[in-house]
């Protein structure tokens, strides 16, 4: 994981789309999906089909996408609980008495959540962290926020290495506290880690000032995206908006 973030390093049409286009595409796609009424099942089918097509074009291995879908687990648990706890008219499914609005609610969470997560996986797996930062910068995200994100990406591996070393040091001195004792040690370790990271921050700031930093980070990005790249990148999102509008107009 300490590699190039979540990037799957293959060359594909999706990988070559500029990062800012992909960011806008993701945002528009998610908005379209979220604004689609839950009972319009065919719309969600179309969304899913388009995403699958994009995953295939991006040459992403299926097992990578399915493994990363695991981040959705808490939402799935919540969604599966809904039919049992919601109130209202009841329906009978496989001998279980479930709430009708609960079933629809669960479908709503599951479908929209999964589509959003797959779209986000598509973005993160086809864009290197640095390109993502450059894209955010081109989209006029404040420079300070881009700098904070960039430091986070850079120092995540350094800090996690620190944490790893502290755990090894603890365990090699025979530490074997119970569950509570372990939590206590971890809390102490996090405090130490915070102090260490704070000191590192000071040193990094010194290093930046030594090289003439006066409060403005140099720009990361080079060229902007041309019209054809915007069109290519936004194809799926624009289709999704069209579907969402149709789902609203045509109704059930």
């Amino acid at each position: 994981m300490s590699g190039d973030g979540l990037l799957v390093a293959v060359d594909s049409r999706v990988h070559r789309v500029p990062a800012q286009v992909k960011l806008v595409a993701l945002f528009v796609f998610v908005l379209a999906v979220v604004s689609t009424p839950a009972p319009v099942f065919w719309a969600f089918g179309l969304y899913a089909a388009m995403l699958v097509a994009a995953v295939v074009v991006a040459k992403l291995p299926v097992h990578v996408v399915s493994r990363r879908l695991a981040v959705e687990t808490p939402f799935i648990v919540f969604a599966l609980l809904l039919p049992f706890v919601a109130t209202g008219p009841r329906i009978d499914v496989l001998g279980l008495e479930l709430s009708q609005s609960g079933v629809l609610g669960a479908w709503n969470v599951l479908a929209k959540g999964t589509l959003g997560v797959v779209a986000a996986i598509l973005l993160s797996a086809t864009t290197a962290p640095r390109d993502l930062l450059a894209g955010l910068e081109r989209l006029r995200l404040p420079a300070t926020l881009v700098a904070i994100l960039s430091f986070m990406i850079r120092y995540l591996s350094v800090v996690s290495d620190d944490l790893h070393r502290m755990r090894i040091a603890r365990e090699s001195r025979g530490y074997a506290g119970g569950r509570v004792g372990h939590l206590k040690a971890v809390a102490g370790g996090v405090g130490g880690l915070f102090v260490r990271s704070f000191e590192r921050g000071e040193r990094v700031h010194l290093a930046m000032r030594s090289r003439g930093y006066t409060g403005r980070m140099p720009l990361l990005s080079q060229a902007g995206a041309v019209r054809s790249q915007w069109l290519e990148g936004l194809t799926i999102s624009l289709l999704a908006v069209l579907i969402a509008v149709m789902a609203r107009v045509v109704g059930l």
Binding site: R154, R203, L206, A207, G212, L220
Partner: peptide, 25 residues
């Protein structure tokens, strides 16, 4: 000034960005 810990000195996403930081300033 070259600091003792290179992790303090290299704070940009890539080597190229980092070397460019000073001259860009």
């Amino acid at each position: 000034l070259v600091f003792q810990d290179p992790d303090d000195q290299l704070f940009m996403p890539t080597v190229r960005d980092d070397v460019a930081f000073g001259p860009a300033n």
